[in-house]
């Protein structure tokens, strides 16, 4: 005979197993700025090795969601767990980065006064301590990895160029390269193809799909063609909560999504 208690226990076991399977577990997160509800009971899960696209109109809370996962903003309520057991709401940006969560900004942000090579060197995983940095000497292993990444992001010829002088698309790629150097388990990518040419966009999609083979990637994007290229599960945000979730085709047929995007 199953009693109510049994049912509850069963449910909590299910939740536990659900958590156990996730790399990122966002549950019931709300945050308010001066009366404006940026996130409203937002919940979604990302599995290890998953590539996920997040779309939504302006003001849907996409960037705020990223701020919360990376520790820039603290939620008013709700849980954010990494690999099912690390509570991200208690940690700051550097901690979270070192746990293995990398973030790419909406506007490409690289270290403009450094060369491409130095940008990657600074992002290279390893000691982040002040004195480690002071007495750091470049190891062969690190050089090797930087070389590999330079090849991946196709900036090998520009390794000694100041990052400030790169084109917009090159900066985007450099930033992705820096994220790769961090060896993250989860990558959060905010509008990676904004301002890119069509062929660059295509290549970026290939690159991200490639990356997602070894790690989880969450992409926030407006560009539907690009999202289609990614060929992955899509989460639609609206007014701080999840409106729909599924394959792009099915999501695009959802009447609520159509209403949000096209207006009433």
């Amino acid at each position: 005979m199953s009693t109510a208690e049994d049912l509850l226990a069963e449910e909590s076991r299910m939740i536990q197993s659900e958590k156990a399977a996730t790399i990122l577990y966002v549950d019931g997160v709300s945050v308010t700025f001066d009366g404006f509800r940026a996130l409203n009971n937002l919940s979604f899960y990302v599995e290890p090795g998953e590539l996920r696209a997040i779309i939504g109109p302006n003001g849907a809370g996409k960037t705020t969601m990223m701020d919360i996962i990376t520790g820039k903003t603290r939620p008013d309520s709700g849980d954010v767990l990494f690999k099912s057991d690390v509570d991200l709401t208690k940690l700051d940006e550097a901690d979270i980065a070192n746990l293995g969560i990398g973030r790419k900004f909406q506007k490409p942000t690289v270290f403009e006064s450094h060369t491409v090579f130095d940008n990657l060197l600074l992002a290279c995983s390893g000691g982040r301590g002040v004195f480690q940095a002071l007495f750091h000497r470049l190891a062969n292993r690190e050089k090797q990895r930087i070389e590999e990444t330079l090849a991946t992001i196709r900036l090998g010829d520009l390794r000694d160029m100041m990052a400030a002088n790169l084109s917009h698309g090159q900066k985007q790629w450099l930033e992705i390269g820096m994220l790769l150097m961090q060896e993250p388990q989860l990558l959060l990518v905010d509008e990676p193809v904004a301002g890119m040419t069509d062929s660059e966009t295509e290549q970026t999609a290939i690159l991200l799909r490639d990356i997602a083979k070894t790690r989880s990637v969450v992409v926030v994007e407006h560009d539907m063609e690009f999202v289609r290229d990614l060929d992955c599960k899509v989460t639609v945000l609206h007014e701080g909560s999840v409106l729909a979730e599924g394959r792009l085709d099915s999501v695009q047929k959802d009447p609520r999504v159509i209403e949000v995007y096209l207006g009433r």
């Binding site: 990376t70 820039k72 700051d92 940006e93 550097a94 980065a97 070192n98 990398g102 973030r103 900004f105 942000t109 690289v110 270290f111 403009e112 006064s113 450094h114 130095d118 060197l121 600074l122 992002a123 995983s125 982040r128 940095a133 820096m178 961090q182």
Partner: peptide, 18 residues
């Protein structure tokens, strides 16, 4: 180099784990 990076893009440095 980290210092210069901080000067130019502080939050990027944080998200890089420093």
């Amino acid at each position: 180099k980290v210092l210069i990076a901080i000067r130019d893009a502080e939050s990027r440095v944080r998200f890089t784990g420093y």
